[in-house]
Design a protein around this nucleic acid. Structure first.
Lengths: 341, 341
DNA sequence: GTTAGCACTCACATATCACGAGTGCTAATC
DNA sequence: GATTAGCACTCGTGATATGTGAGTGCTAAC
């Protein structure tokens, strides 16, 4: 087992390393942290902590740095609780709750906010639109060949889709829109299948051929809605992180972030039920060996749906990141559940 | 004056430098380029070219690199004409002309395309929406407190704006939308002022108080439309460019790109009438001293409006970039003028 | 159990050196 | 007179040696 004093020393070492990015020596600890013990004693404890696997030495005559196991212990029991300031909360509220209407904009803005507050890389996905219920629907003529289909969910999320529909008239589009809305309102988007559209064809006797033409287009358009979209922000922050300012490391990470498949794969591993932290090798991805990932999710109508992910070096300010992720995920949950709309 | 042979040598040197990023020596030129003269002769000519200011020597015993003046001569008269392949054209067409409907998406996609094709940094701005004519308009209820105003221009560009409007009914919104559209159709967005909205108030006698409430909201929403929006893509490409893989240089550029004001300032200098190239010091911005910028613009309804900007190292493949920028700007001009819609 | 003291280690910074790519100049050649 | 071969010279780069110091582990004293 690990003693109380060892824990305090470990915490001091990790805090110092998070600050300085340099291997921490025993003298540094004894001078900077008021533990009331000499550097020699700390040296002994450090040797023990290394044997236990919580620390490691880059080379014989260097100080210690935390191992993944050390970080694990740290995040599980040692991080300083943090809470974000009122000003930050107000900024988040004002940016997320006002002036934004499309789900994509919300996710985009949220991701930007997280990246700016943490100075790390952030990913936010938008909730699976097709699990929401339809609340409003309109078709608008755009040009002679294009029609815009606009869908609004009961959670206040807007999606617009382009349909290739020639020779239509706005009057007819309005009629069809109204009929469609009346038959489909309250239905979840994913349940809007050809069957339910066909049913409504009867009600539109006068417009038979347009409806025939519309059905497959509508079906294809709705199918496209269940792709996961993700919003990645703050890549540029990687450049200011000493771990990655070897431009090769940075490039590797940039390339990883460029590949949407890799990111989707990574997103699949997010535990939707709680904030979770993965450290270095725990992530299981070579490129991210030097990183830690903090994940969370937010709920739409009580069901967990959208995901939040922050990627940074292992020596990140976990307390701070957690509090920000937490606050944003709560805000998004409220937002998409319509509480604040 | 500069002789024909000197021109050929200068061209060879710049081409080689663009390839290798290394100072070019006389022997390299004599071996790689079939100019039919010996390295000694080339050496003499290079000394002359340096005296004329077209070349410079990083240090005494190194080869030559082009000066800004050398690049200037090169882009003015020596670049190899390039034309993009049919496959590339098709890719651009298919990505820009299909599935996209909002102006923001078009600019976003175009910028992404340019960045991918050139492996450089690209900026595309969207046309001043408020100079276009209104073609369609609808208001949609989203939640009890929010209404979505959707505007469509005669060029097929869609903009949606959120209005804070409580206690409305979709039926009333439809009525108001129709009346608004009827009075405003064909009007340029910037001409839709309070006066014209007021005029239409008469026609909506039954909805007096809602209209009163709506007018200031509408005015504010329309005011927000003339902000320049810009889409920056390809920053990550900077990392693979040897000029910037000193992570400090890269960071400086990333910071520059982060600052929207700097970029808007830069965009102001774009000559709307033709493709233009600025090299290094010609740009007049310290951070971009090592860069060249290629700018162009595209037209909406015959008036030049949107801007395109490519930023890269001085030793970029000018011919290639020009052809891509050219093609994209033409495609966007067509797109926003509705020819292909 | 704690701490002072000391020999030891090793990354990092600095100085030194050899190499070679590239130059300018001169003299021979076409 | 233009071109080219030849050669001494320059100087950045990369390799090698050297010194410094932060930090360690261990021992012995407290």
């Amino acid at each position: 087992m690990i003693s109380d004093r060892q824990l305090r020393i470990l915490k001091a070492i990790i805090n110092d390393f998070i600050d300085t990015a340099q291997p921490v020596g025993s003298r540094t600890i004894s001078k900077k942290y008021p533990l009331g013990i000499s550097s020699a004693t700390i040296r002994n404890e450090m040797a023990d902590l290394e044997e236990l696997g919580y620390l490691q030495q880059p080379h014989t005559s260097a100080g210690r740095i935390p191992s993944d196991l050390g970080y694990r212990l740290y995040v599980d029991s040692l991080i300083n609780p943090h809470s974000i300031s009122v000003e930050e909360k107000e900024l988040i509220q004002s940016l997320l709750l006002h002036k934004i209407i499309e789900a994509t904009d919300v996710a985009n803005q949220a991701s930007e906010l997280i990246a700016n507050f943490t100075h790390l890389v952030s990913i936010v996905t938008i909730p699976q639109f097709n699990k929401c219920k339809l609340a409003n629907l309109k078709m608008m003529k755009i040009t002679d060949a294009k029609v815009l289909l606009i869908l609004v969910t009961n959670t206040g999320v807007v999606k617009s889709l382009q349909l290739a529909l020639t020779n239509t008239d706005q009057f007819i589009l309005d009629k069809i829109s109204d009929t469609l809305l009346n038959s489909l309102i309250g239905e979840t988007i994913e349940n809007i299948d050809v069957r339910s559209i066909l049913k409504m064809k009867e009600k539109l006797q006068g417009f038979g051929n347009i409806v025939d033409y519309l059905i497959p287009i509508l079906r294809d358009a709705l199918k496209g809605l269940n792709e996961t979209e993700l919003y990645l922000k703050g890549e540029e922050n990687l450049l200011t992180i000493s771990e990655f300012n070897d431009s090769d490391k940075a490039r590797q990470l940039f390339n990883f972030f460029k590949s949407e498949e890799s990111l989707l794969e990574l997103l699949k591993t997010v535990d939707p039920n709680r904030i979770s932290i993965k450290i270095g090798s725990e992530i299981g991805i070579d490129v991210l060996e030097a990183c830690s990932i903090i994940t969370s999710s937010y709920k739409v109508d009580g069901k967990s749906d959208g995901k939040i992910l922050v990627i940074g070096p292992k020596r990140m300010d976990y307390g701070n990141v957690i509090s920000i992720v937490n606050y944003i995920s709560n805000t998004l949950s409220e937002l998409f559940s319509g509480i604040n709309l």
